[in-house]
């Protein structure tokens, strides 16, 4: 009984990481109906970026700054926002339109480019980022359950990120412009909204979340250049389970996915990922609009 409780707690904490993967995807999908196929690869790019900033690029003369992960992440955030803004204005805005195909093809292309670039620069070896001892610390929760400090931090960050995104959407001019542009792009333009700028701001925010997710993925586990598509799948499943347009829905979707995988691993170590996907498929059949679809 206690073991199952432990499984549940670990699943919820794992789900926090998946929620962090998914919020950026949820934002881009909600504001501009764009499915970024390279989402997972950008997360892995973020992890490698953090790795390179700390320890340099192996096999080259480039050495890192050796800063701790938190400072490194703070350095990465403005960079990520800039990359996101430029990518949207320079590349993705040109592919957006009534037909979703061009954006799918462009982001699929980006996915291949990023994977091969990482393979070329960092080789196929798996890497990890040291959390300076935090990764092995844990807090006792009752008699026999321990929760890791790092997974707890990740879960809390996911909670904060979700809360902040929901707050921005409900209570700021920018959030209103996001929702209005998503509703009716022509009418938004008639209000003086420059949709290309608004889209680029959404992607900039999404890339900040991607950088956070990438660094945390690197701290929590190992990563390799080919890991991106797997992460994309988790992010996408969390968004769909939660329902389009709701950040708390996406958060809940991530938690449900994490718990499903955790329960699966408990039953049989080979089943974890599979059960996660099966729960997703079941949700699609039972409730295709997701747990908390945007009320329209």
């Amino acid at each position: 009984m206690l073991n199952w409780l432990d499984t549940l707690v670990q699943g919820i904490l794992l789900g926090g990481l998946y929620a962090l993967f998914a919020i950026g995807q949820s934002l881009i999908l909600g504001v501009m109906r764009l499915t970024n196929v390279a989402h997972g690869d950008f997360i892995i790019l973020g992890a490698f970026g953090g790795f390179a900033l700390i320890s340099g690029v192996p096999g080259t003369a480039l050495t890192g700054f050796g800063l701790n992960p938190v400072l490194t992440l703070l350095l990465m955030l403005p960079l990520a926002a800039g990359v996101g803004y430029a990518l949207q204005r320079g590349v993705l805005n040109g592919a957006l339109g009534a037909d979703p195909m061009p954006t799918l093809v462009v982001t699929f292309g980006l996915s291949i480019i990023i994977q091969n670039l990482l393979l070329e620069v960092f080789s196929a070896d798996t890497r990890s980022i040291s959390a300076l001892g935090i990764e092995t610390q844990s807090l006792p929760l009752g008699e026999s359950i321990h929760i890791g400090v790092l997974p707890l931090i990740i879960f809390l960050l996911a909670l904060v990120a979700t809360f902040m995104m929901e707050w921005v959407f409900r209570h700021t001019n920018l959030g209103r412009a996001f929702r209005a542009t998503s509703d009716d792009i022509d009418a938004a333009q008639l209000m003086g909204v420059d949709h290309r700028h608004i889209y680029a701001l959404a992607t900039a925010i999404a890339f900040v979340l991607i950088a956070v997710a990438g660094m945390l993925q690197g701290l929590r586990t190992t990563f390799a250049p080919s890991d991106g598509p797997g992460l994309l799948l988790y992010a996408f499943e969390a968004v769909i389970i939660g329902g389009l347009g709701s950040f708390w829905g996406t958060f809940a979707g991530g938690i449900l996915l994490g718990v499903s995988q955790s329960v699966g691993f408990r039953i049989d170590p080979g089943w974890g990922i599979l059960i996660g996907h099966m729960v997703f498929l079941t949700m699609l059949m039972v409730r295709p609009s997701g747990l908390f679809p945007k009320t329209r």
């Binding site: 509703d183 009716d184 009418a187 209000m191």
Partner: peptide, 17 residues
């Protein structure tokens, strides 16, 4: 062409964008 996911007041505020 009102914004369906915005309240009346939020629609009005969009006018002042």
């Amino acid at each position: 062409r009102l914004f369906p996911s915005l309240s009346v007041e939020e629609n009005l505020r969009m006018g002042a964008y």
